[in-house]
């Protein structure tokens, strides 16, 4: 991993304790130019993580708190009549930034959720017929509460598919929690964070990630995995080509962070749960098998060619 990335990771590890793997995944997701979904119960540090990532990378950061009365204009911006100039003036919404933290994204109505959708997929927004480019890099970190909590609009599958990875932070272990309790206020620590990178630097890294080599043997493995989800009766439906691409990009980023110029099957295996869990459903609703069980089962069943 480049020294800058290393420093970024170190810095975030210092704030979110005991979650090195998830932080690495989040960075890999960013390097692969994908959007990240963090799903967990409130209070495990989702927002803190998003904030820390943005600050450490030296990116502009905006936070949108999603609520049930959030309107698309609250995300994208609005044109207001200016009496001085005698014309309409566009006031960009919070989405015009590098890192958007969409907090509790499943609390908003589908209408507000889909406003974010175009931005995520196209890196542009269309307001009042006018298409405006978003700054680059553009990275959405959405957090959501587990959908069994009340007052949530679960994201539709089409929207879930647009997140490259979905991670869960989970509770810290006893040791990490003790350190957290003993340590400084996280909010103060966030304020003290120094940017280790800037937007141009990140763009350069992202370009390098794309150069990581994926050999035919590796692509064989990737295709075997994807085909297994399409053929096996355990899955309601197979992985989409977009998921295949996500898997490859994620694995490339992971290999890059491991200082390699080529992807290994292990890279795919490492990122696969985060990449596919939110895209897989069990064929039978009744068995209660979750996406993560399915992902583990998939990894176990498909041999490396």
């Amino acid at each position: 991993m480049s020294s800058q990335l290393n420093a970024v990771a170190e810095q975030i590890n210092g704030i979110i304790l005991g979650k090195a793997h998830q932080i690495r995944l989040a960075l890999a997701c960013l390097l692969a130019r994908g959007h990240l979904l963090i799903e967990d119960v409130p209070g495990v540090g989702k927002t803190t993580l998003a904030h820390a990532i943005a600050t450490s990378l030296g990116l502009r950061f905006q936070r949108i708190q999603f609520t049930s009365d959030l309107l698309p204009a609250d995300i994208l911006g609005i044109s207001v009549y200016n009496r001085d100039t005698g014309g309409f003036e566009f006031h960009p919404g919070p989405v015009f930034t590098n890192v958007v933290l969409a907090d509790e994204v499943n609390r908003a109505t589908p209408r507000a959720q889909s406003a974010l959708l175009e931005a995520m997929e196209e890196n542009q927004v269309t307001i009042e017929g006018e298409t405006r480019q978003l700054p680059l890099p553009f990275f959405v970190i959405a957090t959501q509460n587990p959908s069994y909590q009340i007052g949530t609009f679960p994201l539709p599958e089409s929207q879930l598919d647009r997140f490259l990875m979905r991670i869960e932070l989970g509770y810290p272990d006893a040791e990490a929690e003790r350190a957290l309790l003993k340590g400084d206020n996280r909010r103060d620590m966030l304020l003290r964070l120094q940017p280790q990178l800037d937007a141009d630097g990140l763009a350069r890294l992202q370009l390098e990630v794309q150069q990581v080599h994926a050999s035919p043997a590796l692509l064989d493995y990737l295709q075997a995995l994807v085909n297994a989800t399409r053929r096996s009766p355990s899955f309601a439906h197979g992985l989409s080509p977009r998921a295949s691409l996500a898997l490859l990009h994620g694995a490339r980023a992971w290999a890059y962070m491991d200082d390699r110029k080529h992807v290994l099957p292990e890279d795919i295996q490492t990122v696969l749960p985060a990449v596919v869990t939110h895209r897989l459903n069990p064929a039978s609703e009744t068995t209660g098998t979750s996406g993560s069980t399915l992902a583990a089962q998939l990894l176990e069943e498909v041999a490396i060619p």
Partner: peptide, 8 residues
Amino acid sequence: GAAEGPRV
């Protein structure tokens, strides 16, 4: 294992 990567 069939699904075990070389480095692992």
